[in-house]
Simulated scan of single mutants.
Amino acid sequence: MASVAALLSVGALRPAPAAAATPPVAAPHATAAVLDLDRPGRTPEVHGTDSAYDTASIVKVDILATLLLQAQDAGRGLTAEERGHAEPMIERSDNTAANALWRQIGQASGLAAANKRLGLSSTTGGPGVKWGLTRTTASDQIRLLRAVFDGGTAAKPGSPVLNAASRAYIRTLMGQVIPEQTWGVSAAGGSGSPRVLKNGWLQRNTSGLWDVNSVGQVTVKGHRYLVAVLSNGSASMSDGVSLVERTARQAVA
């Protein structure tokens, strides 16, 4: 007992330190933007903070729009090889096809030049070959969807940048997405609403959390809505899909 008392007096025996607190995990976050094409006005409603998110595969719509705009400038249509990349890139979200077209459009600099004409002001192309790390906002995605579905742009309202054939081509491919990839903003449409959309999903290497995004057009009670939902921080892809669909339904409602 005397020995124990002596050790305690000089601090040789101390209670074990408390375990360090586990840092809090950021909650999943989502932002939605909605534009009713069948009502006057062309200002989207934004639900949540309109901050920038990584695009994952929704950028493939922007890549295709850029490719088509470059082809228009050259006075030509797409080649068979370009169509052979564009169609699986949108319909099946094929990454190899996206890699090829990302290189062809000039990567981030080519995307930026097209986006300036399309009216996008808050989208930055991913570094190098990493097109999936392009950063964008929900309101910018509505601007891109307007250029595809409505023909208008923020830069020149009523003056389409993409011609009618280019717009129809993108819409057609977005309407032919394989069934297992038709989740997302389509949840906001009625049961008979066409599924015209493009989704993106990406698991982060550092945190293991998921970015899940969806953009497209839905029809509700005879009104055509452009809808963009961007999210991050979900624990699983299925959680992210549920968050995106719930956010889309609430935003359109």
Rank of each mutant, 00 (worst) to 15 (best):
L78Q: 13
L202S: 11
S122I: 00
G119Y: 08
S207T: 15
L226Y: 08
R171V: 13
G106I: 10
E87S: 12
E45P: 04
T31C: 01
R167F: 11
G158T: 05
N213F: 03
A187V: 01
R167W: 09
R39S: 10
P157F: 03
P44R: 05
P17F: 12
S9M: 09
G192C: 07
T123D: 07
A168L: 03
T137V: 00
L145R: 00
Y53P: 03
T22R: 08
S109R: 15
T182N: 10
V227H: 02
N95G: 13
V177Y: 00
G11T: 14
S186H: 09
S166Q: 06
G175I: 09
Q203I: 02
N115P: 14
Q217H: 13
L8T: 14
P127E: 07
E45K: 15
R135C: 03
R143K: 11
A21C: 03
G184C: 08
I178P: 01
T31R: 00
L118I: 05
A32N: 01
S231M: 07
E45W: 14
A187F: 04
A100T: 08
V215D: 04
A253F: 10
D150E: 09
Y53D: 02
L230T: 03
E82N: 10
G208V: 06
T123Y: 09
G11F: 12
G75S: 05
M237A: 12
L230N: 04
S121I: 07
W210G: 00
E245T: 03
A235T: 12
G190H: 11
A27P: 01
V61T: 14
S122M: 07
D140N: 02
T182F: 07
A114Y: 04
D94A: 15
A97N: 13
R167E: 12
G192D: 11
S3I: 10
A56I: 04
A56C: 07
T31E: 00
L13C: 09
K156P: 03
R14K: 14
Q141I: 04
T206A: 15
L202Q: 13
S51M: 08
L35M: 13
A113N: 07
Y169G: 05
T55K: 02
T219P: 05
L68D: 06
V10P: 01
E82A: 10
A155F: 03
L64Q: 05
A16R: 15
S238V: 08
V4G: 03
T219Q: 12
V25N: 09
T172R: 12
D38L: 06
L243H: 00
G208Q: 06
